[in-house]
Amino acid sequence: MSLIGLAWAVGGRIPRRVGDALARILAPAVALLPLPAVTAWEETAARAVGRPITRRERRALVEVWIRNNLWSLSLARWDDDEVLSVVDITDADLGKLRTSLAGPGLVLALPHMGSWDFAGAWCARVGIKVISVAERLPAGLYDLFRDARAGMGMDIYPVDQPDLMRALADDIRAGKLVCLLSDRDLSSRGIEAQWGKAGTVKVPAGPALLARRTGADLRVATARYEGSRLRITVSDPIAQGRPADMMQGVVSEFAAAVEASPTNWLMLRKQFL
């Protein structure tokens, strides 16, 4: 078994409460290490919130990072009651999801916040079929992530799948929820948007193009840890219009969520242009 496979197998067997305890115990020491990813987050988060990041926030980010990875590794083994027991979402926000799915369809744009994998697993447990897209990672990681997410109740397409937009449009018309991570661009065809007062970022056009193509609502969902629980928040629909204007609306929602909880934003790279 490869080192990656071994880490996956071990991590997938760590119970949630043990994983949360490990994250709390390890975070102070790990936060002291000169990790390039954490240093990049510190610079990016400081730009996003308009002030220096504190040592306490750096430790909190590392704890979220460790916890998110352990949750993602083990989620396929969680039973339904455990998934449902750790989510906080208002009736109004759940109603937004169901209203869009019952009507024009729904595209959800998400940032890399909290545990987006868990948000998808929760949707599956409340009867919402989730479709998403992932980059094709090396060393078999894509297959591991795809199979794990299938175990959580989600279907994943590779980003380079032929006729991807057509497949996603068909899923929307079939009443499925298409969730797309949208706070960084993986191609050379992204749209520039203003992130509050922090500067310009490049984000994918896909969520807006897909919503325009199908007539579906485009909403933003964010997830953040609150103690041992996960809070999921859903926005009102982003106004239909030009793709650039729609993605600016998405980025404005992202910026507000990150400003409120920067340590939940797992943007472990430099983000601003």
Rank of each mutant, 00 (worst) to 15 (best):
V107C: 10
L75N: 05
D81M: 04
V62P: 14
R136Y: 06
L180V: 09
K176F: 03
A76H: 13
A134T: 08
V133D: 00
D79E: 14
V130P: 00
A150C: 07
E135F: 10
D91P: 02
G153P: 13
D155Y: 15
A139Q: 03
L94E: 15
Q161F: 03
R166N: 09
D88I: 09
G151A: 11
D171E: 14
W122Y: 09
Q161G: 03
L180K: 14
D79K: 07
A121W: 00
D183T: 10
E135H: 14
R149H: 01
V86I: 11
R58T: 03
L101M: 07
G50E: 14
H112E: 00
D163M: 12
D163R: 15
L144M: 14
V159L: 14
A109F: 06
L70Y: 07
D171R: 15
W65N: 02
T90I: 05
A167C: 07
D117K: 04
A60K: 00
N68Y: 09
G120R: 11
V133L: 10
V130F: 02
P138H: 10
D88S: 08
D91N: 13
A174S: 14
G114A: 01
L181Y: 12
L84M: 07
E63M: 02
I89G: 01
A121E: 04
G120S: 06
G105D: 07
V64Y: 00
P138S: 12
G95L: 09
R146E: 15
G95E: 03
P104Q: 07
K129P: 02
R59W: 12
W71V: 06
E57S: 12
V86R: 13
Y142D: 06
N68Q: 11
A148E: 06
L97P: 00
G127M: 14
E82D: 13
M113L: 04
T54C: 06
L84D: 12
A169T: 13
K129H: 12
C123P: 02
M165H: 14
L75E: 05
L177I: 02
D93H: 15
A76E: 03
E63I: 00
G114S: 00
L164K: 07
R77L: 04
L181G: 12
H112T: 01
S182H: 13
I89F: 01
